[in-house]
Simulated assay, not measured.
Amino acid sequence: MTPRDASDDSRWSDLERPPLNAPALRRALVRDGGLYREVEVVQRTGSTNTDLVALAVKGVAEEGAVLVAEEQTSARGRLDRQWTAPARSGLFFSVLLKPAQVPVERWGWLPLLTGVAVATGLSRAAGVDTALKWPNDLLVTVGGEERKAGGILAERAGDDGVVMGVGINVTLKEEELPVPRAGSLALAGAVSTDRDPLLRAVLRSLEDWYGRWRAAAGDPAASGLQETYAAGCATLGRVVRAELPGDRSIVGEAVAVDGDGRLVIATAEGVQEPVGAGDIVHLRPA
C-alpha cells in the first residue's frame, strides 16, 4: 500500500466531515451542452470569489467554471463582512457566469436567482425548509427561531462576467457558530448532511434557473424568477428598517420585490420606496 501524504491525512482528520469527491462531482456536473465546464476543489484558500475573479480577469476561466474550497481563511460577505467556519463544515464555492444575452441592467437579479437556486436545491436534497432574506441571506429554522445558514456574494469579473460566491453552513454545531444568530443545516434537522449530493443539487438547480432566466433575456417575470423569489422571501410582509449610507433610514412594511430586484418598502406616510441591494448597509426588523 502506498502511504498517504500529510495533506491527505489532514483531509481525513475528522471522520464526521469527510472531504468532497472532486472526480465524482466533475462526472456528475460537467457534460456536453451543460453550463459547467470545470469543477475544481481546493483544500484551502483565502476566498474562492477572489481566486475565480482573478482567473476570469486573466482570461483563463470560462463561463461555468466552479471553484470549491474545503476551507476559506478570508471569506467575505456583502460589504466585505468577514466570516469563518471549520474545514469541511460547509459548502464554500464560486461560479463564473457570463450572461451575454442579458442586458447589464438586469444582472442585479443574479444574487436573487442564486438564492432561489440554493434554497430550491437544499430543500430537495437536505429536506430543510429554507427561506430567503433579501438581498443575499439563506435562512433556516432552529428551535423555532430563524437563523442565517448561508450567504451569497456577487462580484463583477471584467466587463462580461459575474462571479457568484456561495457559503452554506452544513454541519456546524451550536458551539462552533460564529454568532448566536447563525445556524446550519444540521441544527435545522437536515435529513442529509452529505456535502457531495448537496453540492450537486445546488449546482444543478443554479444551472436550471440560470438557463430559464437567460432564455428570457433576464426578464424576471417571464422566467418565473420574480414570482418564485417573492414566494420564498421571508422579508416580505414584515416591518423593517433599511439603514442607508449617511445615517439615513427607511422604516415600513416590505411589500414587494420590483422588476429591478429592489425591495419596496411602504412607509407610514403612504410612500412606497424601492431600495437596491447596493444602496443598503443593513436591513433589520423594525
Rank of each mutant, 00 (worst) to 15 (best):
P3E: 15
A24N: 06
A24C: 06
A24D: 07
L25A: 02
L29G: 11
L29A: 09
Y36M: 04
R37S: 15
E38I: 04
E40I: 01
V41C: 11
V42D: 10
V42S: 12
R44I: 05
R44F: 01
G46Q: 13
T48D: 11
D51R: 11
V53A: 05
A56G: 09
K58A: 15
A61D: 11
E63P: 11
G64F: 10
L67W: 11
A69V: 11
E71W: 09
Q72L: 08
Q82R: 15
T84N: 09
L97A: 07
K98T: 09
K98V: 07
V102K: 09
V102H: 02
W107E: 08
L112P: 13
A117L: 04
L132M: 14
D137Y: 08
L139R: 12
V140D: 05
V142M: 11
A157S: 07
V163T: 12
G165Y: 03
G165E: 03
G165L: 09
N169S: 00
N169C: 01
V170F: 04
E174R: 08
A182H: 04
A182P: 05
L185C: 10
A190R: 10
V191T: 14
D196H: 15
L203E: 13
S205F: 06
W209Q: 01
R212S: 06
A215N: 14
A221C: 03
T228Q: 03
Y229S: 04
Y229D: 10
G232I: 09
T235E: 04
G237R: 04
G237H: 12
R238F: 08
V239H: 08
V240E: 00
P245A: 12
D247L: 05
G252S: 10
V255T: 14
A256F: 02
D258N: 01
D260M: 01
R262S: 05
A268G: 15
E269G: 14
A277Y: 01
L283I: 00
P285W: 08
A286L: 01
